[in-house]
Design a protein around this nucleic acid. Sequence first.
DNA 1: GAGCAGGATCCTC
DNA 2: GAGGATCCTGCTC
Length: 325
Amino acid sequence: MSMGSPGCEHTGCTTPLHSPLYISHTHTDTMAWLDEADDIKPPRSLLGLPELRWPGVYLPYYDRLALEESPWVLRMTEAPAPAAPPSSTPEPNQAKPSQPQDPPSGTEGQVEERCLEQVQTMVVGEVLKDVDTACKLLNIAPDPLDWNCVDVQKWLLWTEHLHKLPQVSMMFQELSGRDLCSMTEADFRQRSSQFGDMLYAHLDIWRSAAAMKERCPPEVIADDNSWSDVMRIYPSQPIHLWQFLRDLLLKPHNYSRCIRWLNKEKGIFKIEDSALVARLWGMRKNRPAMNYDKLSRSIRQYYKKGIIRKPDVSRRLVYQFVNPV
DNA sequence: GAGCAGGATCCTC
DNA sequence: GAGGATCCTGCTC
């Protein structure tokens, strides 16, 4: 499947589909999974709409969960599904009159529905995991309504970093989460004509995720890694630097460009972008002046404690957990 | 110049 | 007191 160009010219929908935040680009592992899952095909209504792949797959799940507070969901689901565009070079099986393509048989339709359900569940799981991770790393509540002004700024800085946006946070100063949630998409665009719709869509995902968490029992949306389990068990514990680093390492689809494992079994990791890791740590600890010099000093304090050390073959920006998971 | 090592001091919880 | 932030000097790559 190809992603194609952004936009929604097929449906005429006004929803800002160019926004990567409909399905965050952080879900690269999910996207890779989809690319590899050749045996799982989307419904025929989605074929021929490559640029609508994610919204098309994603939205029905939200629709099923009746997230009526997400207007962009409703707009999309209301849009008529257009027919697949004619192919100039039809595939051999399409030419066979004995294998009519439309309408799909009942069994075929059920298979499509099951496949779609699998994809939807997986995608939503990834969204919730990413929101969960961001909450832990930023030390903010999952529900935007609970954010204070500082939390809002953290979230904005985080979103800037994650999606490589220019500085937009200054356009939303002195706003609480409740203020933010009461704003319309137009209000967002008024503050940032270029990225307001992206932020609005992203905030919508967070609000939807918060609503979903209220509906779903914890075990349904539980992260499957043991480290996050520890974080859930001790949510009020102040996070340590080594915990923070390990949390980043355990989310490679989000943070591999700033920190990654060199040898996970031995606990050896490399900080790829020292400035960014320091900035993230500073955000987590409310220390705007944090830099890598300070962060690395804190790492070196772990040498004496036997938590982190330099690997046997010392390399720049490479460290090793003494007791890897 | 960037990263590393480690001492010293201060702050917060 | 523990953990971390900050500042510092000196060294290596």
